[in-house]
């Protein structure tokens, strides 16, 4: 029997990992921290709500629908905002402020949509959890195996896509050097569009599964961006595989760490749960901006390790 705390951690960490992978991919390809990334998850959350509560479908149908909705949203935002600003020579700071503006606007639109749902369908769209609509698997909630399997599948597919397909290799080339990639004949604009579609879709896909375990409201998405950023930064913001470590680390600190501290210091610690990702962000940026890969590199470069290495190589 798996304890519910571990199940909660597994679901949360898998979904955060999917978000962090998308965030990292955006940072690698476009070099901007996309503050609107969490808001894509809000789109996914309300896709699930609409399809499950209003249209009475199975909640898992919203996974592909949410992917397409989030992907199209990401594509539209790229074409209308990011591409235009970049053509005009906007600096990285301007682009980042643009993503913040997108976050504010999309957050307001999601709130308006929730109001619309509440008025139109007379359902409580401002605070909901869809645990009852989930199926049971060996006595567990269905979301527990599904989220973990989905996370692993996405990691494997993305790995194969980036290393085996022509498009993925072109994407990696563009992330290294845009001008050189264009010289070889890669359509950099197409790569950017594809990456924005994939990241938007992945974030929205992760969001579609949130209401099946956690209580959701329109501002959940705003909070998720902090957690995503913490995971991505912990894994080194330039490393997709680091995002997996980061996502699971932040999930563990937020769920297991808070519970452990609550046992030690009393329930007052539970209020400060939202501080944990923020503290992780600040500490990582202050101590080691490169995250886990930076720490590994530092250990590898340290004199002790180097002397060990050289002793073996002496012969």
């Amino acid at each position: 029997m798996i304890p519910p705390l571990l199940m909660s951690f597994s679901v949360y960490a898998s979904l955060i990992t999917i978000l962090a992978i998308g965030y990292t991919l955006t940072y690698i390809i476009s070099h901007i921290p996309n503050f609107a990334h969490g808001t894509y998850a809000g789109l996914g959350i309300y896709t699930t709500y609409t399809l499950t509560r209003v249209m009475r479908f199975n909640p898992y149908i919203s996974c592909p629908v949410g992917f397409v909705v989030g992907g199209i949203m990401g594509l539209i935002l790229y074409i209308i905002v990011i591409k235009t600003l970049r053509m005009m020579g906007g600096s990285l700071i301007v682009l980042t402020i643009a993503t913040l503006a997108i976050q504010i606007t999309m957050d307001a639109l999601i709130n308006i949509y929730a109001t619309f749902l509440r008025i139109r369908t007379e359902s409580w769209a401002f605070m909901f959890v869809l645990k009852l609509n989930d199926f049971k698997w060996l006595g567990y909630q269905g979301i527990f195996p599904v989220s973990l399997l989905l996370c692993i599948t996405i990691v494997i597919i993305l790995h194969l896509f980036l290393t085996r397909t022509k498009m993925g290799i072109a994407m990696r080339a563009t992330s290294e050097n845009v001008e050189l990639a264009q010289v070889v004949g890669i359509d950099a604009d197409l790569i950017q569009m594809l990456s924005w579609f994939i990241t938007g879709g992945l974030a929205s896909l992760s969001g579609t599964l949130f209401p099946l375990w956690f209580e959701c409201n329109p501002s959940t998405a705003n909070r998720l961006i902090n957690v995503t950023m913490a995971g991505s930064l912990f894994g080194g913001i330039n490393n997709i595989y680091g995002a997996i470590i980061g996502g699971f680390f932040v999930g563990a600190t937020e769920i297991i760490g808070t519970t452990a501290l609550m046992y030690l210091f009393g329930p007052i610690v539970g209020e400060y749960r939202y501080m944990i990702p923020l503290v992780v962000v600040i500490l990582v940026l202050l101590l080691e901006p490169q995250g886990v890969p930076g720490i590994i590199k530092r250990i590898r470069d340290s004199t002790k390790f180097a002397s060990l290495y050289s002793r073996r190589r002496k012969w």
């Binding site: 905002v81 307001a108 709130n111 109001t115």
Partner: peptide, 25 residues
């Protein structure tokens, strides 16, 4: 408007930021 005006304010904030940055950098 049938929705709370506070959200209109936020939309205005975001949209004005984007419009300024695109049309009047």
């Amino acid at each position: 408007f049938w929705f709370p005006v506070a959200f209109l304010e936020n939309i205005l904030l975001g949209a004005l930021l984007l419009v300024t940055m695109i049309f009047k950098p």
